[in-house]
Design a protein around this nucleic acid. Structure first.
Length: 225
DNA sequence: GCGACAG
DNA sequence: ATCTTGTCGC
């Protein structure tokens, strides 16, 4: 486990990403989809009141039942800058993960991993700091190119940065917009997509993300009361 | 230089 | 991310 350091400015943040990206592990298959535990993490903000709340929700990968959950409250310590999202979210997310009473298993987060200008998005960063297998599932293609995948659940196309496949546009429900999956740490792209499909049985987004989103929003409301 | 731009 | 009512559709 590496300690998180808040960079003083954007240039330093990019340098941190360039330094840590060498620690990403890409040659592990990761935990088998549908087994063990899967944990969703998400963050909600109130920039005016300077409050940020993160939530972590652990599910049984086979049943999608909630096994455990936690929240953590913090302060806004970094602005949103495309490409530097991790520095805004990670401190509070780490606190929420550390508050869990059980091992998280595979972590699923909003945003990207390898699909990033420096190949080190939120999912990669979170993986390197915790050592956990992590994947990223985003709701839009950011700056990357892709062809529209087929219309059925499970259809996918490569998400491209130039001619490099950095992730996939994956259809998780028939006739709905695809989600954008990329590897974070200690997981392969095929398995990342398999996990995403298993977790998105009933909705476009993974159940992990839906649960974590609902929890951090509720916790933020409570924190503002 | 201008626009685009995960959450 | 967040600001926000009604509304179309299963």
């Amino acid at each position: 486990m590496t300690t998180f350091r808040m960079p003083a400015d954007e240039a330093e943040a990019r340098a941190v990403q360039d330094a840590l990206r060498t620690r990403v592990v890409l040659d592990e298959p990761g935990p088998p989809p549908g087994t063990g535990r899967v944990t969703g993490v998400d963050v909600a903000y109130d920039d005016e009141r300077d409050v940020v709340v993160a939530a972590a929700v652990v599910l049984d990968a086979a049943t999608l039942d909630v096994v455990a959950e936690s929240t953590a409250r913090g302060r806004v310590t970094f602005p949103y800058v495309p490409g530097l999202l991790a520095f805004r979210e990670i401190p509070t997310v780490l606190a929420a993960l550390e508050a869990l009473p059980v091992d998280p298993g595979l972590v699923v987060c909003d945003g990207y991993g390898r699909a990033h200008p420096r190949r080190f998005g939120l999912a990669s960063h979170l993986g390197v700091l915790t050592g956990l297998p992590v994947i990223g599932v985003a709701k839009n293609p950011f700056t990357f190119r892709y062809e529209q995948p087929g219309p059925r659940r499970g259809d996918f196309t490569p998400l491209l940065d130039g001619d490099e496949e950095v992730g996939r546009a994956l259809r998780t429900q028939d006739a709905t917009k695809p989600v954008f999956v990329s590897v974070g740490h200690r997981t392969g792209l095929d398995d990342a997509c398999a996990h995403t499909l298993a977790l998105a049985r009933d909705f476009r987004q993974p159940e992990t993300t839906r649960r974590a989103d609902a929890l951090c929003r509720a916790a933020l409301r409570e924190a503002l009361t």
